[in-house]
Amino acid sequence: MKINGNTKVSKVIKENKEAIEAIASLNPHFTKLRNPVLRRLLAPRVTLAEAAKIGKCEVQEMLDKLVSIGFELDNENNTMDVPSPLSENKAKDSFLDGQKVITLDVRPFLAKGEDPFNILQKALVKLQKSEVLEVLIDFEPIPLIRIQEKRGFVTLSVVEDGLYHTYFKAGESGKEEVPITEDPYKTVSEEEYNELIEAYPGEMITIDVRDLEMPEPLIRILEAIENLEENTGLKIFHKRIPQHLLPELESKNLNTVICPITEGNVMLFITKRNV
């Protein structure tokens, strides 16, 4: 697989699990990658170049390490420049001018292996005008920043004594009515669904639970998932978007695609997430 600074960490890990160890060995900042919670939090949303920045190492160093375990370097644009959101103290002062700072230290949650997202989310909802939320974290929380920027927050990250201070405040336009975040499952049109199925490289198991009474669809699907091979996709014909199943899929960290066709006809496609 060809890689460069723009390649997503998740793709790299998906290709070769050894990459986790390879990157983690680079420096202590990356040992977090061994923590599955953090890995899921970071890997799908961060490119190698960004990851290098989080871990405070050179992109080239990381790429070299990955090349050493069998990845190929995509030379065409590996010199891609990462926009640096790290700002000077001046920027920080003007960012915080006239604002009240509320500090949230998410390190204890990360240490316990918990997802800091909800905690951050709650704190942001409570945030008043002319208040800034300061998040203390060991690495630059790029995924969190991206999501919140989409929702209309303005952010700024500053490193002080090896600790990241990321500031969030409501943007000029105020909070946009963007749904809290992307769903843990994707809803697609019938066309997209069919394309996805056709393009799926692995094997596929199909089950039809439309003619079963609750909770048998739930049982059948969960049983099928329990026996699902790493590269096998599970294609399901269902009557409805299965409300009791979704939280299970989420906790099992599966990729779920839902395609409602008509009332009483829904297709689902579930695969294991390799990240």
Partner: peptide, 10 residues
């Protein structure tokens, strides 16, 4: 792992 609260059941 970004929990969205898909668990709608009371």
């Amino acid at each position: 792992m970004f929990s969205q609260g898909t668990n709608n059941a009371p």
